[in-house]
Design a protein around this nucleic acid. Structure first.
Length: 311
DNA sequence: AAGATCGTCAACCGCCATTAA
DNA sequence: ATTAATGGCGGTTGACGATCT
């Protein structure tokens, strides 16, 4: 391949010069697979030589762990997996390997790529730092509820969530608005029209669903003033709301989420889809703006916001 | 149709911790 | 106890296909 290097004088350098880099060929994959099938993993440098691969041990290890290993899962991440990534990243940060241990078949590399290409992309769209509290709140209060809704009907989720999740298992409109307020209040985080853009999104989502709810929905700004009691997805109403962690972020998150905990407790008797508030002027029908395909592409939100900012 | 731009992901790099000699 | 080799991890790059203009 093109990455073959030319020879030099010393033998060690000669070896190094012979090493291949770049994409793996089928033949190399086959050599590695068959060697490991016969002799197992480990001692990657010597493995590479004995297998007849002109690759570094590191390269072989990476190829095996990230691609060739039989239990490596391919394809798009499920909503459950996305949820776990968001959840665990909020606890552990960029500990990709640690996060990957909780997603069987997924590699740290894949999770890292997902975070950088999907999640950070949205932070860029919002012009906020992906690790900022403001953005974490958007994840927590906007995206996770959508993922949760996508996971409804998924039998595998409930056990998964109860075992691993430390984020709110249900979030509500008030929490989402809280996130927006945070975005608005964090100095130097994002443009001044950010929360307005998101509120526009709320409004447009409602409008786009006007056949179902135009007469019964209040505007998002009204909701922000009035909502003090909310309901959430029935499936998660009884789940405990746990916050675990000892870093600053988690302390902040816990503090912020206390608001949500009260809301969830208050809402425990509410019917699903009923977003009534004490004033009684915010009633969300079942086809509210959470649903209706909006969650089909979780990460379309950034683009939506961007479009709205252009208008 | 063609060039520019964007998004994805496999692979590499550098650093650090651990292990073996 | 020291040092070199190795493994593991997170950050980054670059190739390539898709989409846009």
């Amino acid at each position: 391949m093109s990455s073959l290097r030319k020879s030099s004088t010393s033998s060690s350098e000669d070896d190094a010069e012979q090493l291949r880099r770049g994409p793996w060929t089928l033949e190399e994959d086959s050599l590695l697979i068959h060697y490991i099938a016969r002799h197992g993993e480990g001692r990657w440098n010597s493995l590479a030589k004995r297998a007849g691969l002109r690759r570094t041990g590191k390269s072989c290890r990476l190829r095996w762990l990230n691609y060739l290993k039989p239990d490596v899962k391919r394809g798009n991440l499920t909503p459950q997996e996305q949820f776990l990534i968001l959840d665990l990243h909020s606890k552990w940060g960029n500990r990709w390997s640690k996060i990957a241990q909780h997603l069987p078949g997924r590699t740290d590399n894949e999770i890292k790529n997902y975070w950088r290409t999907r999640v950070q992309k949205q932070a860029r769209h919002l012009k906020v730092d992906a690790n900022s509290t403001a953005f974490q709140n958007v994840i927590r209060c906007y995206w996770i509820p959508r993922l949760l809704q996508k996971m409804e009907g998924s039998s595998s989720f409930s056990s998964m969530a109860s075992e691993n999740s430390t984020v709110p298992q249900s979030l509500d409109q008030a929490s989402q608005h809280q996130a927006l307020m945070t975005l608005q209040q964090v100095p130097g985080q994002g443009p001044g029209n950010l929360s307005e853009a998101v509120q526009n999104l709320d409004h447009q989502e409602q409008n786009s669903d006007s056949e179902h709810c135009a007469s019964s929905c209040v505007s998002s700004s009204e909701s922000m003033n009035n909502i003090s009691q909310i309901s959430q997805f029935a499936e998660y109403q009884t789940s405990p709301f746990r916050i675990i962690g000892n870093n600053d972020y988690n302390n902040t998150l816990a503090k912020d989420c206390y608001y949500d905990m009260e809301a969830i407790n208050l809402a425990s008797t509410s019917a699903p889809g009923d977003f009534a508030n004490p004033v009684g002027d915010c009633h969300m029908p079942e086809n509210n703006w959470f649903s209706n395909g909006f969650a089909d592409d979780l990460w379309s939100m950034g683009e939506l916001w961007e479009l709205r900012n252009l208008n």
